[in-house]
Write a protein that binds this DNA or RNA. Structure first.
Lengths: 341, 341
DNA sequence: ACAGATTGTGCACACGTGTTCATATAACGG
DNA sequence: CCGTTATATGAACACGTGTGCACAATCTGT
């Protein structure tokens, strides 16, 4: 049974098709298709023979052609995520991909760059995606309206989006910031500062607003309000700069863990401060690194497992019932007490 | 111009097709296809009208149907990667995705789980992929033979694979380990230990072999040879265990940076050792974190940018010339001197 | 043994696109 | 005015699959 690799017009060898398997096994093409369809009417012996021949020839049904069917699904789900240098992003992306695989979906991932151009996202919309997941990032809302026209469900996570018909899963950032302030105050801190991330991200805006609101409620004014870039280096530089001007600060809330770790390092290495005694620090997200003994960072948990399981649930429900009303899930943050507060 | 969302058999609204655009614009379907094909013969005014109508209706050519063409490409490239908890993996994945996007390819990513089952990989082979990139991980070589039958080019990176016809880009791990040993010896260390990662990964086997060979060349015997799991926690536990039995060690080579950071933390926190004076440590990979001031880890750079650009180059060349002889690129590691040796 | 239900099978259609082919129109040089 | 070339256009085909439909074969119960 020699494989006679027939070639395309440009001489490029082509993929084995069901037609060729049918010919080799002496059956109709329909039978081949049915042999790969669980529950279809095919004689058991014939199915086994077909599968054997297919195995021999290295045939697999072309998922593209299958997805072209009127009621077929492509099983492709695009994930738009931000810069993976942010560990929270990469950790949650990993869990998300794993969950999608378990659902039989294949993630097409856009990201790695700091800002993904809208053109790139529109490019992937050329595929008849089962869904589009917007994980953080700063892609414009117009993408959602494009998806609406293409009947591609959109699920947003970790960011704000007002668009109608879009499911959303997001941590209650304001509440998280409020908890952080309360914990710092409970510890006895009285001169609090804030280090924010990228201001164009809604997560940063909400955390900042939550910090300011909680401070106002407590009748206090912040000692410092800085903006950085969500990175370790950014947090380091911000605190280095801050402490070189004033040491009148005893508590610091950082809008994510990476900046908190950078801030802590700067305070220790550059100024010899003791954390938390000289300066208490609380981060946000609870990335894996926060629990490392070298850091042992107190932080606000932005629960990845719950976020992912909600996203997957919403995805499944929407595929079953496209007309379903959209949901907005707010996930309650949780304070993780470690050694820096 | 009302969009009359026609529905599939199951009542699910369907995607706008070129047919509908043609009808709405009063032209043939061919004209619509040509309007989206640069350089095709279409009257300029007509093309603009078609594009306007398409915009209005939210039409985009279905990439699946286009990829079905005999000489068409799907523009999908699968990336099989390992556990993204390993920061080296997630950093290089980000760069790789970015590069593929720039080439007009869409990455379908498998990973996130520690061990990706071969079944998952075979699943994604259902799509007529332009290529499959195996980044590290421990997927069996049989995947490559499956790909060969399907005429899907395979590019392997960060791991060993003997299979014929497979392009490969990999750091010279043995050489890297040798450099590490030489640097530790040059510093004056005489009682060296090794902490390895997951033994079923070829990268670990090579680094271990390189360490042993370099030690033998220097006429020395290692004080300790441990195996861990490539994680921070693993490195921490290994060193905690090691140093509680003996302190007769003054130099440590770790098979990746995460373990090196864990090892350093354990030595400092648990035993109050000074790094590098009491114990010198060298890692492997040069992840972003290694440069953080808190760590300032001396390490062997496993150059991501060069790796990625080689992968992309090989991919492009193979798409142009499928019959091209396969290449094996070995990337020279480079010692990055920081503060831990 | 016979009616009815179940199981097996091939033909033909639909899915949405890019592209060849034949044909029609316009441009152009003489 | 004709002959040649460049441009424009719609019909038709190919891509590879799942499945509805009509019909054949086999099984089940009385």
């Amino acid at each position: 049974m020699r494989q006679q690799t027939d070639r395309g017009k440009d001489g490029k060898p082509r993929r084995i098709t069901a037609e060729q398997v049918a010919k080799a096994a002496g059956v109709s093409r329909s039978a081949v298709s049915r042999a790969f369809t669980p529950g279809a009417y095919v004689d058991k012996a014939k199915r086994e023979r077909i599968l054997f021949v297919a195995q021999e020839l290295g045939y697999r049904p072309n998922a593209l052609a299958a997805g072209l069917q009127s009621n077929g699904r492509s099983n492709l789900v695009a994930i738009v995520t931000g810069d993976l240098v942010n560990h929270f992003d990469s950790e949650i992306l990993a869990k998300l991909m794993q969950g999608l695989n378990a659902m039989g979906k294949w993630p097409v991932v856009l990201g790695g760059s700091d800002d993904i151009s809208e053109a790139e996202v529109l490019g992937v919309l050329g595929y008849p995606l089962d869904a589009l997941i917007l994980r953080g990032g700063s892609v414009g809302e117009s993408v959602a309206t494009h998806c609406a026209k293409l009947n591609i469900p959109v699920i947003v996570s970790g960011r704000n989006m007002q668009t109608e018909g879009v499911d959303s899963v997001c941590c209650d950032n304001e509440r998280g910031a409020e908890i952080a302030v309360q914990q710092l105050l409970a510890r006895g801190c009285r001169r609090l500062g804030y280090i924010g991330g990228l201001t164009y991200l809604s997560s940063d805006q909400e955390r900042r607003a939550g910090f300011e609101a909680a401070m106002a409620t407590a009748g206090m004014a912040p000692v410092a309000m800085l903006q950085s870039d969500y990175s370790f280096e950014g947090g380091y530089a911000a605190v280095k700069n801050l402490l070189s001007q004033t040491t009148e600060i005893d508590g610091l809330f950082c809008a994510n863990d990476a900046m908190a770790l950078g801030a802590m390092s700067a305070a220790q290495k550059e100024f010899g401060l003791k954390v938390p005694n000289d300066l208490a620090i609380i981060g946000f997200d609870d990335i894996a690194m926060a629990a490392w003994p070298s850091f042992n960072l107190s932080t606000i948990r932005n629960d990845m497992d719950r976020t992912v399981s909600h996203i997957l649930r919403l995805l499944g429900e929407r595929l079953d019932a496209p007309g379903k009303a959209s949901e907005t899930i707010r996930i309650e943050p949780q304070f993780i007490a470690r050694g820096t507060h």
